[in-house]
Structure formats: C-alpha cells, structure tokens
Nucleic acid binder design. Structure first.
Lengths: 234, 234
DNA sequence: GCAAAAGTGTTCCTTTTACACCCATGG
DNA sequence: CCATGGGTGTAAAAGGAACACTTTTGC
C-alpha cells in the first residue's frame, strides 16, 4: 500500500462535553479517568479514534459507552492540537459537545465508569486542557442558544414554560421577564400546548408543552431572536 | 518514554481555505498539488502537521509558504475525519480559513506553487473533500459576517463605502439599499472618514474610510446587525 | 450638458422592552 | 384565607425597511 513517507503520525482522540439539565441547573457529566496516567482524576469522557471509525461514529461510540444513549444531539466543537496537551504522548483531540435529557440517563454506570453529574458552576479540576474545552463549549452553547432553538434537546418531551425559562436563565445567567419570554417563545410556533399540567412545582400547576416536531425540524437552523439584548453577546 | 499502547496513530493535515477580495468579487486561492497522487489537480493549500508544531503554528506556516504573508486573520473551521477522505492513507484534516487583502499578496509564487485566484462562484474541481471544506467555509463566513465586523480583513487599509457594500453584496449574493447600508455601517462607529477620495471607479469619487483600530479591536467580537433580514440565514 | 456613480432624509411599520395585576390551588 | 407560583396585556421606544432626489465631475 502506498503511504506518505517521513510524516509524523499522531494519536487522535475524541473528547465529549456532555451537558444535561435537571430542571433547575445546567450540569456536566464527568468521569474518573481509568488510564494509567492521572488515574482517578476527573476528566471528560473520551477515547482514541479507531482505525476504521470516523468522528461521528467515534463520538457516538464514546457517548454510548458512558450513557447507553443513542441518537443524541452532538456537534463538533473544536480541534485541540497543542503539542504538550497530553503529557504522555502527543495527542490531537477533536472535542464534541452533546446535549441530553438528563432523565433519559438513568443507567447506573457510575460503578463502571465512575461518572458523575456536576453543576456547571461547580466542577472539579480537570485533566489536561479539558477545562478549556468545557469553557469553549459553554460559550458556544450560549451563542448558539441565543439564536437557534437548540436547548430543547436538554428537555424531556413534555416541559413547562417556567422550566424552559429557568433553563435559559441558567445558561445566560440572567433573569428574563416572564411575559416577554413567554411571548417570544410562543411566537416561534414551535410549542404545542398540552391539556395537562405539571403540578410538581406549584399549586396552580403549569401547562405542559411539547415541541411541534415538524416545525422544529424545519426551524432548527432558522434564525430566531430568543433572548433579550443579544448585542451583549460575543 | 511512556506511550499509549495499541492505538492507531494517524496523519494530521492542515488545509487552508484562503479568501481574498479584489474589489468586485470574492476569490479563493488554490494550488496545483505537488504530491505524487492526484498531481496537477487543484487543491487547497495544505500540509502535514509537524512533530513540534501546534495548529496555529502549522496553519501560519502553510499560509506563509504560499503567500509570504504573516499576521493574517485565520480561524479554525472544522476537523474532517472521514476514513477514506484521502485515498492514499488515512489523514485527519483540520481546516482553517484565512481572510487576506488580495493586494498584499503580490508575490509571484505561481511559479513555485502554481497558485491561482479563482472567483468563488467558478472554481475548478478539487481533490478529496476540499469542495466540502470550501462550502463550509463560505457558509461560516456568511454567518459570521452577518453579525461581526470580520470582512474588513479582506479590504486594504483605505476603502470606500461602495467597495465595502459590494463586498457584502458579493458574500450575501444580494443587493442592499445603499442608504440603509451606509447608515448601518456608520452606526458601528468603526469607520473613520478620510479627506481624500478614490477617483478610480467614478467621476465624482468616493470618500475613503479607515478602520478605527481601537474600536475595531474592542468590537471584533461584538454583536452587530450588519445585514438586512438576518432571519433568512441558517 | 449629460451620463454615471456618490451621497443623503423621512416615513412607516415591526419588534422589543418595561411594567403590574389577576388567577388557581394546596395547605 | 392566604401564600405561592402561573399566566396574561398595553403603551412607549427603538430599530429596520422602503423609498427618490440632488451632487459632482469627466468626457
């Protein structure tokens, strides 16, 4: 087989930044590293890309190993290539972020993987450049969520407006006016009001909504103004 | 030295999508491939990442080899990892896009590299997945240019409003109203009107403008509404 | 003096914001 | 009956879009 000569071949890893929302705050799924070096330290879920595996397959495999989930929203974040980012051996990492409905992740894989959800604002020290990856993922999530209806990926099938609003508020770290928020989200026509209410979090109860799946698919890339004063973003 | 065992090491390349603007249309810089396979076919400028080189150094090196330029705007676009994207040997490619003032690129390196500018709407067939890279870069450029003052990187130090407008019109493939365009761009406060005019392209002449560099640096990440109807973007 | 491109103002409409009260219910 | 959180409307302001005429000057 013909090959390129005299070129350096490098390990290529995939690391996954896995976000979840528990109904009140944004969380990050971390694992305790099993590999020899830095064993026991907290890290993102990752692994080396295999011989016959592309990035989509690789990231899905890694997510599935940890959570058992399939068909989850994943998006490439960035490729990290600093020469010494892994002190053992040079490794390029392609980072993906995933948004999952935290309630679908019920498996007790903690035993196998020592995985744990951490509030995004209170995460342990991470190995290598993983904190940088998390920071970049948070920023990208904010940016994207400001204009695209992406955060629904974090919610269960049925959700209430107050839940949706606390999700946005958690991510943008800002309190929105509930009248304006409701009007804005309703105007996307993505929400279908249900007949039943969530009575968990209040006496009056809040109506459930579902996504209009057709419209959602059509508008996923559409450009909506979902938060006030987007001019303050970067 | 400790290493990870039994893992696949892969070639990692960097490919550069180099955009330029000649005053009337957007162009792409391509080279004729020098490597054995597909020799003579048009391709993006690229190369393998070196042993002690990170992505920033690598992309700058590659751009510099082709154009002689330094200090150019470059941004990581995406990492491409399909197993068979390079038929010779599996190669992961990290694509960067660059925006350059076409007039600064005066070197006749065509002899060395067989490089040539092509109108973005009329490019030759490219090797591997390079067309996909170009398409993605165009889309990202559009998206970014709609909200961030990024296109100035394509212009010379002094430019006129009509030039700026044709740049935007070329990229968005749409005619803007010059009154609204002028007002919108002026309202960014990024432009400093000069006393002299460009008399090349009209009898009356159009005033030159320069960037307010302080404000530009401060607003580079700021969020501006630079084009009409951004809701049509994706 | 005319053709060609530059430059500039106003009006209308849509969108965004700020803001406060009533409703339903469980205890 | 009252405390708690859910739900809704309006008015004022700002921003965006549509639109046409005057200016300059080289030929």
């Amino acid at each position: 087989m013909v090959r390129y000569h005299k070129q350096t071949r490098i390990l290529v890893a995939i690391d996954c930044i896995i976000f979840g929302f528990d109904g009140s705050e944004l969380k990050l799924l971390l694992v305790q590293r099993g590999l020899e070096h830095e064993k026991g330290k907290w890290s993102l879920m990752g692994g080396f890309i295999q011989k016959d595996e592309d990035f989509v397959e690789g990231s899905a495999r890694i997510l599935n190993e940890l959570t058992g989930l399939e068909g989850v929203y994943m998006e490439q974040l960035y490729a990290f290539g600093d020469v010494n980012r892994d002190p053992i051996e040079r490794t390029v990492s392609v980072a993906y972020f995933a948004l999952i409905d935290i309630h679908k992740y019920e498996k007790q894989l903690n035993e196998d993987y020592h995985a744990e959800w951490f509030p995004i604002k209170d995460t342990p020290k991470l190995i290598f450049d993983h904190q940088q990856m998390v920071d970049m993922a948070k920023e990208k999530l904010r940016y994207k969520a400001a204009f695209h209806p992406i955060l629904f990926e974090l919610l269960p099938e049925k959700f209430t407006l107050p839940q949706l609003q606390s999700l946005y508020e958690g991510i943008f770290d800002y309190q929105f006016d509930k009248r304006n928020f409701s009007r804005k989200l309703q105007s996307t026509k993505l929400l279908v009001k249900q007949k039943d209410k969530d009575k968990e979090s209040s006496k009056k109860g809040a109506f459930y909504y579902k996504l209009d799946k057709r419209r959602y698919a059509a508008n996923f890339h559409a450009f909506l103004n979902l938060i006030p004063n987007p001019g303050n973003l970067k």
